[in-house]
Design a protein around this nucleic acid. Sequence first.
DNA 1: ACCTGAACACCGTTCAAGT
DNA 2: ACCTGAACACCGTTCAAGT
Lengths: 190, 190
Amino acid sequence: MGGTVRRPRADALRNAERLLAEADAVFRDRGTDASLEGIARRAGVAIGTLYAHFPNRRALVGALLRDRNDALFARGDELASLAEPAPALREWIEAVVAHAATYQGLAELLADGADDAASELHASCERLTAISDRLLDTARRTGAVHSDVTGADVFTLMNAAAWTRAHASAAQAARFLARSVDGLLVDEVG
Amino acid sequence: MGGTVRRPRADALRNAERLLAEADAVFRDRGTDASLEGIARRAGVAIGTLYAHFPNRRALVGALLRDRNDALFARGDELASLAEPAPALREWIEAVVAHAATYQGLAELLADGADDAASELHASCERLTAISDRLLDTARRTGAVHSDVTGADVFTLMNAAAWTRAHASAAQAARFLARSVDGLLVDEVG
DNA sequence: ACCTGAACACCGTTCAAGT
DNA sequence: ACCTGAACACCGTTCAAGT
């Protein structure tokens, strides 16, 4: 109460930014299990500085994802107000899968984060599930989707598909995702 | 040529068996990424002994799986000769998923092993895919399964489902698997 | 023929000391 | 207010020396 928010020191800000930039590069290359010491080294700071800014690996990943998450949530809200709910749901799932596959290991962090309230990624997992539920609701009203599918089901599917992207050929992963999404939708046969 | 196969020394045999027993226990507990040093310690041997018997982690996992794999392959051959191909395929998939989920991390080793001819698990991955293809063939002949599904698709699905078992609630994982298998089968509606 | 364990290179995490 | 880097505890992997 009455505590003034101090603006961070300029060097601290610069260090945080360099750490994020190097972490992004390294995680894209080697996945979210990559060495944190290597990231600090590449950013030109001591390992203690990395821990001062990001108390653990998930916090670092979470910071890296913040902007992309916001864009994803906004896109989800847009899609929810679209005329055709089936393509909207499909596009939503594809966007989230692409997101969850940006780093190898991220799908695991997300899947685990949904069930762990202490995870730095927990809130975004709940948001992804909630948006999925919303898209399903409208899709259900037009009979485009099977009636018993939940947002949690979609969240599970998205993580499994993202994981598959890192552990199967691109072709196999694409087939898996397409088949999974088809399984949610009610056959549009005459 | 003419080389006589030497029977291993009794102590070497005992060490290998203790290593396998402890590795199984530890892997069930902590997954296939668990410390090999810890396993050697628990088995009462030096770390070099573990490496002498099993040159790498995959070789250790592979040795552990040998018996279970044989049982699985035999079951697959049985199922292939069953009258009703749809339930046979379903049971096959469920058995393999249970197998691939015995250790956390095993689904990843299997998925990666399919594309890596150097992996100690490669041969069993190919066998699982081949048996899946056989079951699909007979299922296709009775029109029970979608015509474009391949053994590789089923293999991918099984790994994704096994991975999900370790990274979602049991209920979610079961729903995911059930929905995925349903997606393979042609609707049996009148 | 097999086993031991030191040796090397690496890592996560904390925290006293500096600026 | 922030940064440094030593300290501690741990690990994978190899290989010379022993039995």
